[in-house]
Amino acid sequence: MKSFGFQKIVDRQIDLDKADLSLVQALARELTGWQRCIGCGSCSATCTAAGMGSFNPRKVQMLVRMGQWDQVAQEAVHCQLCGKCRLVCPRDVDTRQLMLEFKKLQTISRP
């Protein structure tokens, strides 16, 4: 089937009623600049780690917003903390700080 250009799409629905968003709210209170993010993707466009693989900072922060902790843990480790994303952010969000905090989520008990 693949040779015809078709493939099965994995179901990507998320039940937000089941996701625990309490941690997201706590993070948002601490990372005040995060609220300014408009999801433009400038961070992903310049990302050093993205050039080497499938890492995508914009996707990671969306996953956090949706409480998808398992995926966040798998993704955030790839960030190299170089800070290019912070420099290009049009909304002046400290994206590097966000990613550092997401990395640290691995060690605290997640919902």
Partner: peptide, 17 residues
């Protein structure tokens, strides 16, 4: 493009990375 030199990660205290 490349991987990062390691200094930014070092500055955050993530020495192992």
């Amino acid at each position: 493009g490349s991987i990062c030199c390691g200094r930014p990660a070092q500055l955050t205290g993530r020495t192992a990375e």
